[in-house]
Computed example of a mutant assay.
Amino acid sequence: MHIVDQEHVSASLRISASAPHVFAVLADPMMHSAIDGRSSVADGTGRIQQAVDQARLTEVGQMFRMGMNHPNHPEGNYQTVNKVHVFDPPRAIGWRTGHDPKGDGQLEFGGWFWRYDLMFVDQSETEVTLTYDWAAVPQSIREYLRFPPFAPERLTNSLQHLAELAAPKLNT
């Protein structure tokens, strides 16, 4: 199910994995391109190429960069700088997305963020809600970017990828 309004879009999915395990996958930037669906551009948003910064996410304020690709971006391939603004293991994790336009370390954030909320169902199931929020995007950016910049179904696709990555691996 998707919830879309003028300021955010969200989707939820029950995942067959414990909340701590799902949270561990989300806190690993190396997993984000797989969650995004990079192996299948038709799923997720398909924009994340790879983690530039590979350290696990451990606290509010932590920064991590991601290599991105978007056919309508002036550079095609580019980097985002993400700043963790929610870190509440194993219940919630989120980050604001920005960039370093001049390459001088002065970050600019566009006003949107990603957030995952995890709700314990039982020892082996977690309800995960993924939200993309653009409420703080200034009008100057809204004049040239359409929000959300992807179809809402892509959030569900990303959650399905997360479910596959978090599923317990059985020894055969």
Score class of each variant (00 low, 15 high):
residue 14 R to N: 13
residue 27 A to P: 06
residue 22 V to N: 08
residue 99 H to E: 15
residue 16 S to Y: 06
residue 59 E to I: 14
residue 57 L to M: 08
residue 82 N to C: 12
residue 78 Y to S: 12
residue 64 F to C: 12
residue 26 L to K: 04
residue 64 F to N: 01
residue 81 V to G: 00
residue 79 Q to N: 12
residue 91 R to L: 07
residue 88 D to G: 03
residue 81 V to N: 04
residue 21 H to I: 07
residue 13 L to S: 10
residue 73 H to M: 13
residue 76 G to Y: 14
residue 23 F to D: 04
residue 89 P to C: 15
residue 71 P to M: 13
residue 14 R to D: 14
residue 34 A to Y: 12
residue 22 V to I: 13
residue 39 S to I: 12
residue 39 S to N: 13
residue 93 I to A: 09
residue 39 S to L: 14
residue 76 G to T: 08
residue 34 A to T: 04
residue 77 N to S: 14
residue 19 A to C: 14
residue 14 R to Q: 13
residue 75 E to Y: 00
residue 85 H to V: 09
residue 109 F to T: 10
residue 30 M to W: 05
residue 28 D to C: 15
residue 16 S to P: 03
residue 28 D to K: 09
residue 76 G to C: 09
residue 75 E to S: 00
residue 66 M to V: 05
residue 44 G to N: 02
residue 33 S to C: 11
residue 15 I to S: 02
residue 83 K to H: 02
residue 40 S to R: 01
residue 38 R to I: 08
residue 69 N to A: 15
residue 98 G to R: 00
residue 24 A to W: 08
residue 31 M to R: 13
residue 79 Q to G: 03
residue 93 I to Q: 06
residue 36 D to I: 05
residue 85 H to K: 00
residue 75 E to G: 00
residue 28 D to R: 09
residue 15 I to Q: 06
residue 15 I to V: 00
residue 47 R to A: 15
residue 107 L to S: 09
residue 87 F to H: 03
residue 57 L to H: 00
residue 32 H to A: 13
residue 107 L to A: 13
